[in-house]
Design a protein around this nucleic acid. Structure first.
Lengths: 111, 111
DNA sequence: TAGGAATATTCCTTGACGGGAATATTCCTA
DNA sequence: TAGGAATATTCCCGTCAAGGAATATTCCTA
């Protein structure tokens, strides 16, 4: 995992844009409207997202439709695999501990 | 989803530290050794990770053991849910498209 | 209790990033 | 083909984050 996806998403306005694009492709103007960003800054942030591979553009005459790319999110997803293992492991340990505790209690109650 | 986890992971050395800690708790000195970071910078990065909630510390005399916290990763995981829906949706569309195409071909071959 | 090991903090400097304003570019249509 | 709409780019400035070096802090042990 390299850090470009993280840096792209580390900027609040860009994260906002990404979440906006969940609803489908959008035009620069629409994005600017929904984010209180001026058009130039919207363009700039979209450029960063584009270079990070988080979005792609399709030119339609005057307009540009920006759309989410799924690859980076899928990469994130598999990056998380390792951590899922870790937290499952920890959960199993806790689980075992609780079971042992319960077994112990049962034994006491028997006597 | 707020951006603090992303900014914490956006710094290469910090991402490196997080991945190191997959192997279990580590001391500041150990971390510094494994990352070509000087001790002060290691401390500083750990502070950031700490404040972002990505790690926790346990003091042991002179040493401090830093250890991963799972909550932020779990949060990331559920944040990804939305995007999983999106890519499944797209995959279904592609799937349907291919099936239609195949049905069409079969029809042609029949005649 | 002095010294040393492990860690944290401070100060400084530098480079990158984000916003604002102005301007350039592209494309459509009257 | 001139003008206008949509978008991109450039320049400037202020802020912030990261590394280096030095120093402070904490805790152990001889």
């Amino acid at each position: 995992m390299d850090t470009t996806t993280f840096s792209a998403l580390a900027e609040p306005n860009r994260l906002r844009i990404v979440e906006l694009l969940q609803g489908g492709p959008m035009t620069v103007g629409e994005i600017a409207d929904h984010t209180e960003l001026r058009q130039p800054q919207a363009s700039k942030h979209l450029r960063v997202l584009l270079e990070a591979g988080l979005v792609e553009v399709e030119a339609a005459a005057n307009r540009r439709n920006y759309k989410l790319r799924m690859e980076p999110f899928q990469a994130l997803d598999s990056w998380l695999d390792t951590y899922r293992n870790i937290w499952n492991e920890r959960f199993d340990n806790l689980d075992n501990y609780l079971k042992q505790l319960q077994a112990k209690n049962n034994k006491q109650n028997e006597s």
